[in-house]
């Protein structure tokens, strides 16, 4: 780690701590700040254009990983409970089966929502999510205005949120 980044980290500890707390770390914020410190200490980084933004970005990613891990742990617990339940003949396994089906249905709905977006919006969304391009770059690439891409992005997120929320 460059001394510059280290210095920026130390100088901005309170701000980063505040961010982690608001971002869902709650009482674990101090521990996560420590984890963030270790992470940037061990990562081989070249010169960083905007060190403070780099640190925030790392904190954001840390929180996303944590959220994902918590969710997956919860899902595993459920799966474990179900594997323990008796599957004797004549006993309904509806809850387990339905959960799988709901997940499949949700995926089908999300994919249908992507399909319904139309080709350009879908491609713009892919460039945003997968290639990580800035909206301006996407606009240039697809040959449309920035405001068109901005509206494509909103439409895409709304559509996938609708598809996921439409559970009943």
């Amino acid at each position: 780690m460059s001394d510059g980044l280290q210095a920026i980290f130390l100088a901005n500890q309170p701000t980063l701590l505040r961010f982690l707390t608001a971002r869902g770390a709650g009482t674990d914020a101090e521990d996560l700040l420590q984890e963030l410190w270790l992470k940037i200490s061990t990562a081989a980084t070249g010169p960083v254009a905007n060190p403070l933004s780099y640190l925030f970005r790392a904190a954001e990613n840390l929180m996303r990983d944590r959220y994902r891990a918590t969710r997956q742990a919860t899902l595993r617990d459920i799966a474990w409970d179900e594997s323990q339940s008796p599957a004797s003949p004549g006993v309904s396994d509806t809850p387990a089966g339905e959960r799988v089906l709901i997940a499949r249905e949700e995926l089908a709905r999300v994919e249908a929502a992507l399909e319904a977006l139309g080709e350009r919006a879908r491609e713009a969304f892919r460039l945003h999510r997968i290639e990580g391009l800035a909206q301006r770059a996407i606009a240039a690439q697809l040959g449309v205005s920035l405001s068109t891409i901005e509206s494509d992005m909103r439409r895409a997120y709304r559509a996938i949120m609708d598809a996921r929320e439409d559970r009943e």
Partner: peptide, 13 residues
């Protein structure tokens, strides 16, 4: 919720 929805759709994209 929006971050999770985005991550869930990534494999399809």
């Amino acid at each position: 919720a929006v971050v999770a929805a985005g991550e869930a759709v990534d494999p399809s994209l």
